[in-house]
Design a protein around this nucleic acid. Structure first.
Length: 1101
RNA sequence: GGGCUUGUAGCUCAGGUGGUUAGAGCGCUACACUGAUAAUGUAGAGGUCCGUGGUUCGAGUCCACGCAGGCCCA
């Protein structure tokens, strides 16, 4: 007969490896997909990781979340295809290659050819693929690694080109300006990544100016605006105020020219600009040169009232058309520093640019040689010739070489000019943090650069609307972080001036008047053919043509009017790569149209919350713009994995956790279960390795022990779940109880997974296994398993526990795929009840409502409370559980409770070792009742008078309590007013039983009779004796079923009587066929029971 | 600077719609159990619910303003 495997020792890491092998050999993952052919699909998109770095523990977290729902949906009957992928382009790859080659960006094309450089990127990007594949397997992440999509693949890029072409045809792709960090010294724009490198922000002292902008048509009213970059004042095209900020007009004098002026600034900033000591000075007393300058607030307005006011251009070197030089409202204006009025220069600030565009304000531009609009600072960082007074000066003194550096910087010279013109209110040095170029160490400029954009703003409303249909976990990320981002959407800047990435497929003619966007390899070939005809190219490109730089740059096309066309040198944002994966992973629309249709949009995706503006956005944007659809219906944005103290993990700090080490030590299941159960995936997880150990001990250890317990006895009795399943109605109270709880659990866990709440699911399962199955059901029913014949009752116990174990395995399989598989196999190999080769091919359990019995669950809860209270009393009285006591008494105030307790009284009695349960009701006359107000109801009824009502109720004695119990209501007098209290307005309980040792919890009270009669004492002694005998059996290495003969010699009457009186009991418990009181030989064992020494001799029959 | 988020026992976390003894696990202490045994059970100690105001008869819970940590973006 088949046996359940019994284990001497748990080895969870070993189970992981063993099961992994089993899955591989039997192709279980493949089957879990192919067996579901024809079933409804559940689509999951894999956000591609980059394999140019080693995986960390946070990847285990992210991928566990993904895996759980794919496995769950598979068990729920869906077909879940999971195509893996690799993100291969991008700056980190470039930086790493540059580091390894010991070059800088400038060296590309000089020291190293673009070709060599790209080859190196291609090698580097997959460097750690093996580690990644290894982790994927070991952690049990089921994803198809055989046919992954790779973003540098030619087919992948071709899809990207086709998408770009579609956007281009919809007029959504355009070239424009954006304000970007720019290093004139290095001659290149910087990415935010580069700006975030350590050391880029440095404290510097700059000359700052609070400039005076003269209000149009006024005599001497000026708006004050502060800037830390005076060189941008010549490009000023507007002023911004906060709509809700209060502004004042102050009558005063200019400290440099001593002229009378009226200045307008935020009310909150007056104290920062005017000396309080001058508060009481009179304006008419002011004399030119006075240190203290008097001031007087003469008017007050809101920012929104100032909007629309015109002012005179401050430095009118380059003109601009109206509505330039107008006051507008900006949401970024604060009164933290400056004047509460912000100087706006469309060409030199991102906020400035945005607010200018919103208000249609032209910027200050000059024409270059080709007639294009360019800013007043050139790419070297010098003023253009049009700024006559300062033409050719660097705008930052740091850009000069040491020899050429002027004594007075441009900022200082502008300050002097403005002071002389009565346009400077205040000039001062100011120390602040300013970003510097990490390569040249010179300050950067915010500067308008050419870029290609996708006009996402044209789809803003659809993006916002469709986002509302997405189920975000947590909701706040969707509404807040993502929703707000969509509300303030700007066009997607697609350009990157780099080498390793997807090239922009746009060719532009030499005169910039014609352009063409290529949407496929075939199109490109057709264009190349034309170019060959025109004599610009000599050879057609081949099928294996690499769509990367530098090869694409060598292609010269021909325009309609016969000009040469060159590719725009930009690459596209790598986020376009990943956002396009729903299409590009299938090489859609060139191939696989049917697969794409079935797998778009995704039902579910998951990635880190840091992807909100990355992958989540690009997926959403492309789906909305190209398909008028969401890209995903459900999304989990998981949080960070921090170290145990809440610090970010980093290799530099040495606090990073190695996932292989953790899995190697604790196995994949405990690692996964810990991460999911400890905190919601969207909260940050403080990863503490001890927590993994705890999960292993507490949850998996308990489950393992429970299985082992089952296996031990089921093997002895040969239980194989053969024959009839015993009807639930014929099972014991506790069987029916645990099955009721089990079915409730199935319902709740199913719901939790379905709601994308994995943490709730794991906590439910864990509590069920440890508290209900192990600590209550198994503990109370232990004897049923090991005592007596293999009868119906025993069979029911086996069946019940088996069902619990099997169901728990299925419920927990999505989170702990290895151990649950192992448990499934161990159980099923004996019973053969399931036909599926793997738990991951079985169906998710379905709750049977007819098993759920809430009344029974209440009863058991009562039993648990009563037992716990009695234990507590025994403890207080120092009476051990092995000592039987005659009774407990329980006051019952209603019949229902009484019946409920009666239904489980056997259970209670055996658990706490008492002979009897006695109920005390009103008739007993010994009850002392306690009453307290039910605030929930009286709060609603009496509102502010609650206090008085509560005081009245609390003062009641037995007569009032009896009265309200009898009549169902009671009238009291509050403040001369009669109010009526109903029985629901109070809670009556019994706390005291005069003369007894009592304990209570909630409405349940227990009193314990602590009298130990001789008979009880003898019985207790017999129990102790059984205990010693059992120990002895174990010490002697006897088998559970061995029968024995026992001889005992003792001088004491108590001992002898005890053994005689309880002989039958002792023999049954210890499997003794005889128990003799007789002299023992030399082979005897001496035992001590509460100071009574006796000798006993034991022989196996 | 802005958006989002977190703050409850030494640690990790629960605490529908406000309701009077704020819970669990781990850890700690003590005890019990010893045929689940490198297990297990019971009990105990341990709290300014981040702070300050407010709303309310009543606030861990609602509102406002702060403080501290985190993420993203400027």
């Amino acid at each position: 007969m088949k046996k359940y495997t019994e284990y001497k020792q748990s080895d969870f890491a070993g189970i992981g490896e063993e099961i992994l092998q089993f899955w591989k050999e039997n192709g279980i993952f493949e089957k879990s997909v192919t067996e579901k052919e024809g079933q409804p699909t559940f689509t999951f998109f894999e956000g591609p990781p980059s394999a140019n770095g080693t995986p960390g523990i946070h990847h285990v977290m992210a991928r566990t979340v993904k895996d759980i729902f794919c496995r769950y949906k598979t068990q729920k009957g869906f077909q879940v295809k999971r195509k893996g992928g690799w993100d291969t382009h991008g700056l980190p790859v470039e930086l790493q290659v540059e580091k390894e080659l010991g070059i800088k960006k400038d060296d590309i094309g000089k020291k190293v050819s673009v070709e060599e450089y790209n080859q190196k990127c291609r090698e580097t990007v997959m460097r750690f693929k093996n580690e990644w594949d290894d982790l994927t397997e070991k952690m049990g992440y089921w994803v198809d690694l055989n046919d992954p999509y790779i973003t540098f693949d030619k087919k992948y890029i071709e899809t990207l080109w086709s998408l770009l072409k579609r956007l281009y045809d919809k007029d959504l792709l355009y070239k424009g300006y954006t304000i970007q960090p720019y290093s004139p010294a290095a001659g290149t724009g910087l990415s935010s990544h580069e700006l975030n490198q350590p050391g880029t922000y440095q404290d510097v002292k700059d000359t700052t100016i609070t400039a005076m902008f003269k209000k149009e048509g006024s005599e001497n009213d000026y708006f004050l605006a502060w800037t830390t970059t005076p060189w941008t004042l010549a490009a000023n095209n507007g002023l911004a105020v906060g709509a809700g900020i209060t502004y004042v007009k102050v009558k005063t004098f200019n400290q440099y020219t001593f002229e009378p002026i009226n200045v307008i600034l935020a009310k909150d900033r007056v104290n920062a600009y005017f000396n309080q000591k001058a508060k009481d000075l009179k304006l008419e007393d002011y004399k030119a040169g006075d240190k203290l300058i008097p001031f007087e607030i003469v008017e007050e307005y809101k920012g929104k009232d100032l909007a629309g006011t015109d002012y005179e251009q401050l430095l009118p070197y380059v003109k601009a058309a109206k509505p330039a030089f107008t006051v507008v409202v900006g949401d970024f204006v604060t009164t933290e520093d400056g004047t509460g009025i912000v100087h706006i220069s469309r060409t030199f600030g991102a906020d400035d640019y945005r607010v200018s565009v919103q208000n249609n304000m032209p910027g200050i531009f000059v024409k270059d040689e080709e007639g294009n609009d360019v800013p007043i600072v050139n790419k070297q960082g010098k003023y253009v010739d049009e700024i006559t007074d300062f033409a050719g000066m660097y705008v930052k003194n740091e850009y000069y070489s040491d020899e050429e550096r002027p004594e007075k910087s441009l900022d200082v010279q502008i300050s002097i000019k403005l002071k002389e013109e009565n346009r400077a209110f205040k000039v001062e040095k100011y120390e602040h943090s300013y970003p510097h170029c990490w390569r040249t160490d010179k300050p950067i400029l915010y500067y308008p650069l050419d870029s290609w954009f996708i006009k996402t703003t044209a789809y803003k409303d659809q993006l916002v609307e469709l986002n509302k249909t997405i189920n975000w976990k947590p909701a706040s990320t969707g509404e807040g972080r993502f929703g707000n981002w969509l509300e303030n959407l700007v066009d997607w800047n697609l350009s990157r001036s780099r080498y390793w990435g997807t090239p922009l497929p746009i060719w532009v003619s030499e005169d910039k008047k014609e352009q063409i966007c290529i949407g496929s390899l075939d199109e490109l070939k057709a264009e190349v053919a034309k170019s060959i005809e025109a004599g610009f190219m000599t050879e057609q490109i081949g099928e294996d043509f690499d769509l990367h730089r530098p090869y694409v740059d060598d292609i010269v096309l021909v325009s309609a009017d016969g000009q040469k066309m060159f590719r725009e040198p930009d690459l596209i944002d790598v986020w376009f790569d990943s956002g396009a994966m729903p299409y590009a992973q299938w090489h859609y629309p060139f191939e696989n149209g049917d697969i794409f249709e079935k797998n778009f949009p995704a039902d579910f995706i998951a990635e880190g919350v840091d992807q909100t503006r990355g992958w989540f956005f690009t997926l959403h944007a492309l789906a909305v713009m190209l398909h008028d659809s969401v890209a995903f219906k459900n999304v989990i944005a998981n949080g960070l994995v921090l170290d145990k103290s809440g610090n970010k993990m980093s290799k530099r700090l040495g606090n990073a956790v190695d996932p292989f080490e953790t899995i190697g030590k604790f196995g994949p299941d405990a690692t996964r279960w810990y991460m999911i159960s400890n905190a919601n995936p969207w909260d940050n997880l403080k990863f503490n390795i001890e927590g993994v150990g705890e999960v292993q001990r507490r949850f998996f250890g308990t489950l393992y022990n429970t299985y082992n317990f089952f296996a031990l006895y089921a093997n002895l009795d040969g239980f194989t779940f053969e024959g009839e399943t015993i009807p639930v109605a014929q099972r014991t109270e506790s069987d029916r109880w645990i099955l009721s709880r089990l079915n409730s659990l199935v319902q709740k866990v199913d719901q939790a997974y379905n709601d994308y709440e994995p943490t709730r699911a794991t906590r439910l399962i864990m509590d069920f296994v440890t508290d209900e199955v192990s600590n209550w059901y198994v503990r109370l029913n232990r004897k049923r398993f090991w005592k007596g014949e293999y009868n119906e009752d025993k069979k029911a116990a086996y069946q019940t526990l088996y069902t619990c174990l099997m169901t728990v395995a299925k419920l927990g399989a999505p989170v702990a795929p290895f151990y649950m598989e192992h448990l499934y196999q161990d159980l099923n190999k004996v019973t053969g009840l399931e036909t599926a080769a793997s738990i991951h091919l079985t169906d998710f359990p379905v709750s049977d409502d007819s098993f759920i019995n809430l009344d029974l669950e209440q009863k058991m809860e009562l039993a648990q409370t009563i037992s716990s209270l009695t234990h507590s009393l025994r403890k207080k009285e120092k009476i051990k559980v092995r000592q039987p006591l005659s009774k407990i008494m329980i006051p019952v105030l209603d019949e229902k409770i009484r019946h409920q307790i009666e239904a489980v009284d056997e259970l209670i009695k055996s658990e706490i070792n008492v002979k009897d349960i006695e109920f005390l009701d009103d008739a007993s006359g010994v009850l002392v009742k306690k009453i307290k107000p039910n605030f929930r109801t009286i709060g609603k009824k009496f509102g502010p008078k609650v206090k008085f009502v509560a005081a009245a109720v609390n003062s009641w004695g037995q007569p009032e309590i009896s009265a309200i119990e009898r009549d169902g209501k009671y009238d009291i007098d509050i403040d001369g007013e009669t109010v009526s209290l109903d029985i629901e307005d109070v809670e009556i309980s019994s706390e005291d039983i005069p003369g007894w040792s009592v304990a209570s919890e909630g409405k349940t009270t227990v009193a314990l009779d602590v009298t130990i009669t001789d008979e009880l004492r003898k019985e207790g002694f017999a129990r102790d004796f059984v205990n010693r005998l059992q120990n002895l059996r174990k010490d002697l290495g006897l088998d559970v079923q061995d029968k024995i003969s026992v001889k005992v010699s003792s001088e004491e009457a108590l001992v002898n009587e005890s053994l005689t009186d309880n002989k039958a009991y002792i023999c049954e418990e210890t499997q003794a066929t005889t128990l003799e009181l007789a002299a023992t030989g030399t082979e005897s064992h001496e035992v001590d029971i509460d100071g009574h020494i006796l000798k006993l001799e034991l022989s196996v029959n």
